[in-house]
Amino acid sequence: MDSLVVLVLCLSCLLLLSLWRQSSGRGKLPPGPTPLPVIGNILQIGIKDISKSLTNLSKVYGPVFTLYFGLKPIVVLHGYEAVKEALIDLGEEFSGRGIFPLAERANRGFGIVFSNGKKWKEIRRFSLMTLRNFGMGKRSIEDRVQEEARCLVEELRKTKASPCDPTFILGCAPCNVICSIIFHKRFDYKDQQFLNLMEKLNENIKILSSPWIQICNNFSPIIDYFPGTHNKLLKNVAFMKSYILEKVKEHQESMDMNNPQDFIDCFLMKMEKEKHNQPSEFTIESLENTAVDLFGAGTETTSTTLRYALLLLLKHPEVTAKVQEEIERVIGRNRSPCMQDRSHMPYTDAVVHEVQRYIDLLPTSLPHAVTCDIKFRNYLIPKGTTILISLTSVLHDNKEFPNPEMFDPHHFLDEGGNFKKSKYFMPFSAGKRICVGEALAGMELFLFLTSILQNFNLKSLVDPKNLDTTPVVNGFASVPPFYQLCFIPV
Rank of each mutant, 00 (worst) to 15 (best):
E274G: 09
W120E: 07
K118R: 13
E326V: 00
R333C: 08
E300I: 15
F487W: 00
L170R: 00
F126N: 06
F476T: 15
G431T: 03
G384K: 05
E438N: 13
F126Y: 07
I112V: 09
E325F: 10
D463Y: 03
T320A: 10
I207V: 07
L391S: 08
V323G: 01
T283A: 07
P471K: 06
Y189L: 02
S162M: 15
A350V: 02
D191W: 00
V355H: 01
H230K: 14
F65S: 03
N334R: 13
S23I: 14
L67Q: 01
V8M: 13
K421D: 08
D349G: 08
I123D: 09
A149R: 01
N41V: 02
L268S: 04
E272T: 09
N334H: 13
V394S: 08
C266K: 11
N133K: 09
L36T: 07
I207T: 06
K423T: 08
F65H: 04
H410N: 15
T283H: 11
I50H: 09
Q146I: 14
T469F: 05
L311G: 01
C266P: 03
G442S: 14
F401R: 01
F448T: 01
Q356F: 08
K241H: 04
I205T: 06
V177G: 01
I284A: 06
L128V: 11
H230A: 11
V490M: 11
K241I: 02
I123S: 15
N398Y: 11
T450C: 11
N403T: 09
P30D: 00
P260L: 05
I169M: 06
I50A: 12
T348E: 00
I47E: 11
L366Q: 11
F239P: 03
C338S: 14
G79P: 01
N277D: 11
F446T: 02
E415R: 10
P227I: 11
K423S: 09
Y358T: 05
K459M: 09
I284V: 10
S58V: 08
P489H: 01
K375V: 08
T371M: 07
S51D: 10
C164D: 00
P346V: 06
Q324S: 08
K119Y: 15
G384Y: 04
K375S: 09
K185N: 08
A350E: 00
N202L: 07
L131N: 05
V8G: 14
N236V: 00
L128E: 05
V8S: 13
V237M: 05
E203G: 03
D143T: 12
C216Y: 15
K190E: 09
F69P: 08
P30L: 02
P464K: 05
V292H: 02
L77H: 01
V8H: 07
D397H: 09
F126D: 06
F65R: 00
N466G: 09
L362F: 07
A149G: 04
K52N: 13
K160M: 09
G137S: 13
G79C: 03
R105M: 11
I452V: 03
K270V: 09
L197M: 08
I45A: 06
D191M: 01
E285N: 07
A238D: 12
Q44L: 10
N258I: 07
P166L: 01
V355L: 06
M129Y: 11
F183E: 02
Q484R: 11
F239R: 08
P480R: 02
C372V: 10
V237Q: 08
A173L: 02
G384L: 02
K241L: 03
M339H: 07
P363V: 02
P221S: 12
D463C: 06
L380S: 11
V355I: 13
L195C: 09
M136R: 08
L467M: 06
P464G: 04
L447N: 02
K84R: 13
P464T: 07
E318H: 10
T159K: 06
L71C: 13
D408N: 10
I50R: 11
P363A: 05
M426C: 10
F401S: 03
D256R: 09
G62L: 00
D293I: 05
R307C: 02
G111D: 06
C164W: 03
I452T: 01
Q324R: 11
E142Y: 03
V370H: 00
N466P: 01
K420L: 07
I488D: 14
S58D: 06
T283I: 07
P166V: 02
T386P: 09
L294I: 09
N218H: 10
Y225P: 08
E405Y: 11
T385F: 04
G384D: 08
K48H: 11
F263M: 10
I452Y: 01
M136Y: 10
C372G: 12
G111V: 02
T364P: 03
F282M: 05
P471A: 07
N259S: 09
R307D: 01
M136D: 09
S127R: 01
A477N: 08
L67K: 02
C372Q: 15
T371H: 08
Y243P: 02
L7V: 13
I389A: 12
V330N: 10
L458W: 02
T392D: 12
E148T: 00
L90S: 15
G431H: 04
T304N: 10
S343I: 12
A103C: 15
R144E: 05
E104I: 10
G442L: 14
K52P: 08
L445I: 13
L458V: 06
H410C: 12
D341I: 04
E326M: 01
K160H: 10
D468I: 09
I387C: 12
L90C: 15
K235R: 13
I488R: 05
T469M: 11
P163H: 03
K185F: 03
P367Y: 10
R186C: 01
G137L: 08
R342T: 06
N466D: 15
M271P: 05
Q146H: 04
L4F: 14
L380W: 10
E122S: 12
W20L: 13
E246P: 03
C372T: 15
P35C: 07
K432N: 07
I42C: 12
P409C: 02
N418Y: 08
S336V: 13
H230D: 04
G137R: 07
G475C: 07
Q146V: 11
K84G: 06
N259K: 10
E148L: 00
K138S: 13
S303Y: 01
K232P: 03
F226N: 04
R433Y: 00
V319G: 02
P427C: 08
L458S: 00
I374Q: 06
Q340E: 10
E148A: 02
L201N: 04
S451P: 03
L312P: 00
I182V: 07
I389C: 13
H230M: 12
G111N: 03
G111R: 00
N204H: 06
P33V: 02
T66L: 04
Y347P: 00
L4T: 15
